[in-house]
Write a protein that binds this DNA or RNA. Structure first.
Lengths: 324, 324
DNA sequence: GTGAAAGCGCTAACAG
DNA sequence: CTGTTAGCGCTTTCAC
């Protein structure tokens, strides 16, 4: 392995100087810099991260902990956070919390033991107090898509309630009155918010929901709940709080011999993975997880980045009937 | 930060001894071990990976490079490789090759520069020669789901041809004669193999394919190709070379007012993400990527693990009509 | 603008 | 079985 020493010898300078040019220190004469740079190139030198980390007591590593790796927008999330991390010349370590507070905390501890310089947390199970305690210990982290009281400045949030309200409003504006909502587990704060947005919009329009059904954010539960719904009621519009459940709902609607949007209109929460690709393409309310993840990573790396807020937006596609 | 030194002082032993117990060296008296262990626990000591890596010139890190992070079975792949890596007390670094030879090589180099002890490569674009050259340079890696001539012992492979043959055979045994195949890009070796298996089975049965169509392994292309197919021909069975295209095919079939399996039977290549969850659940030929990934990781870590081979298996579900 | 020197926290011989 | 002693390759004062 080529070391700093080798490069220094080749260039006829000291190790300190090589270190300076490699790290972009400006206090080096242009000529010296050039000599060193050629030596680096000729030798194919690449700094040893372990030595660097040891000497500087910075690992140059960020950590990402998510609930799980499967489905949903995990790929997009990881992609975004990693791109941003690499843009800063750092590397990313990723771990999953496997949907339990215990595992999530374990993952976090592991990452800190690995000396990560900071963590992006996209977790659901771990309680606020644990996060608060971590902050007290001086740990550096940001929380993605979750509001923690007392940690507002570390949280990158999205207003799920008004996003849902907006989505529901599309139906209402289109003249729909018999509207159902298929939401996620009531054990999750963001599910509750999404449902609330729906209820608020209905209430403000003086409308009674045909039904509010609870699913698991997966396709089978979307299919099952919608099947039950269609047996008992005759909604003209269904609002699905994520894409997977919307796929399940589509299946159930098709099986029943009903058509979208002629018989039933559909809007879903959009992570951009599915909604544009099914037929009919689903009208949705966009959840800008990538943008949020990018901002979260920047925030972690750079204390003073200007505050951004993320507003829900409707993406009109082909699954809604009515005078939009 | 608590160091070895601190623990040594607390326990009244030398640093070397602490290092031994932390690393599970057996040459330590039980009593000494106990004292050290309590000191570790009381102080909350956790070894500094950078220092460790520097001193031992092993990073304790494995790398995984994949084509991309989105869809397909990436989540399962990453999950499996990481679990196996952590089982060995190591950590995993993941990068994507973004489907170009250049990027894939870049990702590999980056990971080696980061001093990864070994790499799991699940890549498509990079040419065999580049891989051969890497091997010559003494780089440690295994190749997942790809056969590289001259590197057979580092490759974990699956017989895509016979998997496809097996799948097609299910249709044939069921009495189908008008069978079409929707395969992936012919630029990819494994796509070609999957198509070949289909053609072989048809040929052996003395049957002429209704059509062989090329898609992009994504849902829109599955939808599009199937739509075209149904305009021009009337197959009773379609074999789809991945799940996403099968979803697209299902949509097209539904749109045409046809039913699965009454009018058209469907079988797909199965990565386990989708096929079991749609309605009707899709009969498929299982591609055991998780098992293969686990084996690949073990192989990377342990030179002498017994050879495993992975055989295609049919998972019967509800999308095939006929006397199976 | 550049060099000398002192570690960063750990592992790995080598003694004893 | 345990301690001593060198480094691992780099960053970082502090002089010059």
């Amino acid at each position: 392995m080529i070391t700093l020493e080798d490069v220094a010898a080749r260039a006829g300078v000291s190790r300190a100087t090589v270190s300076r040019v490699v790290n972009g220190d400006t206090n080096v004469r242009a000529q010296t810099r050039l000599i060193v740079e050629t030596a680096v190139a000729e030798l194919g030198y690449s700094p040893n991260p372990a030595a660097r980390a040891l000497a500087s007591s910075q690992s140059n590593t960020l950590g990402l902990v998510t609930t799980n790796y499967r489905g949903g927008f995990f790929g997009a999330l990881m992609d975004t956070v990693q791109s941003e991390t690499e843009l800063h010349g750092m590397q990313l370590l990723v771990t999953q919390g496997r949907s339990s507070a215990e595992n999530e905390l374990g993952a976090i501890q592991r990452l800190y033991n690995l000396r990560c310089d900071g963590l992006v947390l996209h977790i659901r199970a771990l309680e606020d107090e644990a996060l608060l305690k971590l902050a007290e210990q001086g740990r550096k982290f940001v929380v993605l898509d979750r509001e923690v009281a007392g940690l507002e400045d570390r949280c990158v949030v999205f207003d799920h309630r008004s996003a849902s309200e907006l989505a529901t409003q599309v139906f209402i504006n289109g003249g729909h009155t018999r509207i159902a909502c298929l939401h996620g587990p009531t054990s999750r704060a963001s599910s509750l918010l999404r449902r609330q947005g729906f209820l608020d919009a209905m209430h403000n329009a003086g409308l009674e929901p045909v039904a509010t059904l609870e699913g698991d954010y997966d396709m089978p539960s979307g299919h099952q709940q919608t099947t039950l719904l269609l047996q008992e009621a005759r909604p003209t519009a269904i609002y699905c709080c994520n894409e997977e459940m919307a796929l399940g709902a589509m299946l159930a609607i098709n099986e029943r011999g009903l058509r979208i949007p002629q018989d039933i209109s559909l809007i879903c929460y959009d992570s951009g993975e599915r909604a544009p690709f099914v037929r009919p393409a689903l009208t949705s309310v966009h959840f800008p997880i990538s943008e949020m993840a990018r901002y979260a990573t920047r925030k972690l790396l750079n204390e003073h980045c200007e505050k951004e807020s993320f507003l829900p937006q409707i993406v009109h596609r082909d699954s809604v009937r009515g005078n939009q």
